[in-house]
Design a protein around this nucleic acid. Structure first.
Lengths: 204, 204
DNA sequence: GTCTATAGAAGGATAGAC
DNA sequence: GTCTATCCTTCTATAGAC
């Protein structure tokens, strides 16, 4: 396929992804999606019968990307310290490319909690958790880190990378004008956060 | 005023707060607000001419409550360790009573960044920051904690209390069914997080 | 597959009686 | 202040020509 010859379906899907991610389901208009895709409304309905179905397709894709990235960043055989360094580098890098994703996903999950269950097969979580918990247990056993509640730790780790993006309107404002300051701020976190966590876990 | 004799304006305001917080501006319907308030649509417009104005009133109030609480929790003369213990106890306690507030505020700020500037006078932030930064500098000077980027630390502290609420649909799902598990989970954080932060800041 | 035109429903807002 | 009735715009969705 030629690079510049996207199918109409792809153009629609990309347009819808941007609009939905930016404005949410209820804030988005089919007309605006059609305009951005460079076609008319009727064609939207020809490809994806309803707004709901179009949204479903987009949300599944975007939420899928987000979770897949999260898990893949934690799924390797590095020792904890390197794993954290790798995680924050990769994960914050990903979020820099999709800064609106967390707030979008969180908002839409609140609007319709059932939706997520379809996408987010618990198996992925269970497997990832099992593996990562095992690693933590071993490092606790070996005395590398102090004993901790593992679920709480996972939430802490993720919170520290995701939160600034979920709240980026606020964080940006406090940091001062311009996208650049926000980007520098999260860039720094790629190296600061692994240290922060490792320190928090160090045995006394 | 009698306890059971709320004014109509109050009934509208309370109904609107619940609906807007749950569904956001674009997802909320004036009809639904009227129904919950036990009146009809026309009366909504009599009190708050437009949906936009009604939303403005609600958002200012709710966002104001959220920030005021955040700042007041950090504004005391306790030494760092006690301050953190107090902060998480108070702040998580507050969020337990308003679990939908963070996602709501973050979403609406993205939808309309100018709105927040009107509410969120930078003065509050500047004053709070100055005072808290001074305390951190003193504790660094005294060797109680290691040198850190203070802005990054503030974001970390807030991220750890707020994130589980912003993402509570997800966190709840991972924890398993039922509100109770989520509530237990965040309840534990009131005592775990101060330790986590203090450890992360300890001098080697 | 793609368009124009339009049906049909929903939602915000107002007029006017009481 | 509060209600009923209704206007008018906006939006999703479809019909039908090409």
């Amino acid at each position: 396929m030629d690079q510049n010859e996207k199918t109409t379906e792809d153009k629609i899907f990309e347009a819808a992804s941007r609009i939905f991610e930016e404005k949410g389901f209820t804030g988005s208009r089919m007309q605006e999606i059609a305009d951005r895709a460079g076609i008319n409304k009727a064609l939207l309905h020809y490809y994806f019968r309803t707004k709901e179905k179009l949204f479903d397709a987009v949300f599944s894709k975007l939420a899928g990307i987000m979770f897949k990235k999260l898990f893949s960043c934690l799924d390797n055989d590095l020792p904890l310290e390197q794993k954290l360094a790798m995680f924050y580098k990769e994960h914050i890098g990903f979020l820099q490319k999709h800064p609106g994703l967390p707030a979008f996903v969180f908002h839409e999950i609140n609007r319709n909690p059932e939706r997520i269950a379809r996408i987010f097969s618990n198996e992925q979580v269970v497997i990832m958790r099992k593996k990562f918990y095992k690693q933590l247990d071993e490092e606790i056993e070996a005395g590398v880190i102090r004993p901790v509640d593992k679920m709480q730790l996972v939430v802490n780790i993720v919170a520290l990378s995701v939160f600034p993006f979920a709240a980026r309107g606020l964080v940006s404002m406090i940091l001062g004008e311009g996208k650049m300051k926000f980007n520098d701020f999260v860039e720094d976190r790629k190296t600061l956060l692994p240290l922060f966590i490792v320190n928090a876990l160090r045995n006394p």
